[in-house]
Design a protein around this nucleic acid. Structure first.
Lengths: 173, 173
DNA sequence: GACCGATATAAGACCATGCATATATAGGAC
DNA sequence: GTCCTATATATGCATGGTCTTATATCGGTC
């Protein structure tokens, strides 16, 4: 349920429209969060309704007015409350591991196929993250270093997954 | 949406009641899947409605009849279809990484607190998985080895997360 | 000239998930 | 005697999330 907080966090960095937020979700935080356009707009409405954000309407010609959302003092408080709160118990749902668990219902080729596809997907993710990390360069400020750390986290897990796949391949070679 | 497939997978191992399934979710597959009781019963109803499973009602006295669900041939086909299908694109939602990304809004103590709590949670998960692995012993059959592999996957990721936390601690010491 | 993608917002419909509550009885703890 | 836990299923309600469609214009490609 922290879609609300993800949006608040981004608004805390700078005022944004729903459209901007969608791009931010797809580009800068995509490695740990995703968001549907409809949901982003609804979340913004909810934030404004509860006083955690406010809107400024900037008319344009030829296209809909930009509705620029700005975090309020109450919003900043809520963001900090969330950051200090107990972590949400992770729902623990891993579609791929479910398939491995039930893979005994497949023949050997099927298992190899499953593992091969996983390897390709993880390598793709690894490359994306590496590219992002390169593009960022070394982090100087505390904020930059924390954000880079989220990329390194993704890379660490990708490597762990690839190592695990290597081991499995050896076992099922 | 593979709640359906998780249930089918378990039914493929043996016929089960909703109650049995809830226990199975909480015990044997909890490290990669979880399920609410209400949702399990609804999923079973849907599986029967679509011919992927069938029910046998076993009356008992003093408590509700056991409704034992058995996978059908169509169910087995659907299970295999899913196992061979393209992986679902993972939604990529990591509440903890979101907090790290937005943690610059916290003071140093807040960041340390966040990381400390994460470490505790991951160590807890690691211990749970280790205990499960010990309890299982070495896997002999192909099926046992694949199931053990899902535990090792969890352990590998837990270790990766702990290593990453160590590195971050050094950076923010 | 036709089509596509970017900019920008909004609403409807549906599915999945989770929380709470209801019912009914047996057996063990205190 | 009372309370809690285990057994077993079922429903209602609210929320969260995704998909689809609608509207409107500008600029570039083919």
């Amino acid at each position: 349920m922290s879609m609300k907080h993800a949006v608040l966090g981004l608004l805390d960095l700078s005022p944004l429209t729903g459209y901007d937020l969608k791009k931010a979700f797809d580009e800068s935080v995509n490695h740990f969060w995703s968001g549907d356009q409809a949901q982003i707009y609804r979340t913004l409405t909810a934030l404004v309704d509860t006083g955690l954000a406010e809107v400024e309407v900037v008319p344009q010609d030829g296209r809909p007015s930009r509705r620029v959302h700005r975090i309020t003092a109450a919003g900043r408080e809520e963001l900090e409350r969330w950051l200090r709160a107990e972590p949400d118990p992770a729902p623990a749902r891993n579609d791929f591991l479910a398939r491995v668990f039930f893979a005994p219902a497949l023949d050997d080729d099927g298992v190899r196929e499953l593992l091969g596809r996983r390897r390709a997907a993880v390598m793709g993710a690894w490359q994306t993250l590496t590219a992002l990390e390169q593009a960022e360069g070394p982090g100087r400020s505390r904020a930059e270093r924390l954000r880079l750390a989220t990329l390194r986290n993704g890379l660490a897990h990708a490597r762990a997954e690839l190592d695990w796949l290597d081991e499995l391949d050896r076992e099922f070679a």
